[in-house]
Amino acid sequence: MPRLLLLEGNTAEKRALGAKIGVRSSSQIYAEAISTHFPDLEMDTINGADEDWAFPEGRGFGDYDGMVITGSSLHAYDSEFAVTNQIELTARAGETGMPIFGSCWGLQIAVMAAGGQVEYSPMGREVGIARKITPTDEGRGHPIFSLKNRSFDAPCIHYDEVTRLPDSATLLASNPHSKVQAALVPVGKSTVWAVQYHPEFDLQQLVQLYRLYEDAMITEGFFVDKDSMHAYVRKLDRLIAAPDDMGLRWQLGIDDDILDDRTRNGEIIAWLESEVL
């Protein structure tokens, strides 16, 4: 059976903090999403943000059939080891020609590895649900969106975005917040399928993020106060428990784009079926 490598984007400190408050690591979220559709796939994780990172059991890139670059709270334009090492690892993986998929942080460091540019978004944070993501002409003809509608919503959280794609890249989708919501990014001998949003996230992860970034949600104007945010999160909790509740779907503006596992995870499924399996 094929074996995947998951490049965890967060530092040991961030992973420990998340575990303490019950937030899954980026690689755990990906492993769970992939296992839902491909239970027999084998997966290993490397913690590329850590100075003592290592392949498990002496393996190397050549022992894997594909690599997934997960999310991270880091900034792709910073010069600290936790960032530059992951860009270097992505470049090294690309030299093997292996299939690579990335979301959010994965898109950004692939772009950096290929000579593009990432900056703080002038629109500020996009959080919770990225609305009205629309494939370009190239995107509509690409298998990455084979399980998606012509325009769709997706889970997200980011405050940085790609401001310049490498010349060799292909823009696949945009929305009103960020021009680059999906792209094909050649890195070495590989072409990274990458998206700015998080197709691996479920609603429970969004609830955890709202609670984790509660103060920022208010200071950045997403909610007027904690009571309004808590009321919104309670509705999300109710929708998780009753995903067919049409009233909650309507009130929250959430439908099968988010609630159906196969639709939400569609880009990951398409990559695995087209590039890995």
Rank of each mutant, 00 (worst) to 15 (best):
L203P: 06
L252N: 07
G253H: 02
R249N: 00
P243D: 10
D244K: 15
A216E: 14
R234V: 04
L239F: 01
K189H: 05
Y197A: 11
L248I: 03
T191E: 14
F222C: 02
I240L: 06
G253S: 11
A182S: 13
L239M: 07
M217H: 12
G188N: 09
E200S: 14
G221V: 06
A194M: 08
I254M: 00
R234P: 01
F222H: 08
L184D: 12
D244M: 10
D202M: 11
Y197N: 11
H230N: 14
E220I: 02
P199G: 04
G247Y: 11
V192C: 09
I254Q: 00
R249V: 00
Q181A: 03
H198G: 08
G253L: 03
Y213P: 00
A194W: 04
Y197M: 08
Y213I: 04
T219W: 01
L209E: 12
S228V: 07
A231C: 01
L209I: 14
D225I: 04
D256Y: 00
L252Y: 03
Q208C: 09
Y213M: 05
A194L: 09
A242E: 15
W250T: 08
V195R: 08
R249G: 00
V233F: 07
L206C: 07
P186Y: 08
A231V: 04
G253D: 03
D256W: 00
A216L: 13
Q204I: 12
H230Y: 06
M246W: 04
V192A: 10
Q208V: 06
L184Q: 06
P243L: 05
F201W: 14
K235Q: 13
K189L: 13
K235G: 01
Q204D: 11
F201A: 14
L236T: 06
E220M: 08
D237L: 13
Q205V: 14
D237S: 09
L184V: 09
P243C: 05
D237M: 10
V187C: 08
M246F: 13
L252S: 04
W193I: 06
T191Y: 11
E214V: 02
D245R: 09
R234C: 07
A194Y: 10
V192W: 05
T191V: 15
R249Q: 00
D227H: 03
E200H: 14
T191G: 11
I218G: 09
P186N: 05
D244C: 02
Q204Y: 07
W193F: 06
M229A: 04
Y197G: 13
D227G: 08
L209N: 07
D244W: 03
V233K: 05
V185K: 01
I254G: 00
L248Q: 05
P186H: 12
L184S: 04
V224A: 15
D227L: 13
A182K: 11
A216M: 12
G247H: 12
P186K: 10
G188Q: 07
D245K: 12
D227M: 06
A242C: 06
L209D: 04
R238V: 01
V207Q: 13
L209C: 04
E214M: 03
E200Q: 15
A194Q: 11
D237F: 02
Q205F: 09
Y210S: 04
Q205I: 15
Q181N: 13
L236A: 10
A241S: 15
L239C: 01
G188T: 01
V187K: 03
V233S: 06
H198P: 09
Q204V: 12
A182C: 11
D237W: 01
R211W: 06
W250F: 12
I254P: 00
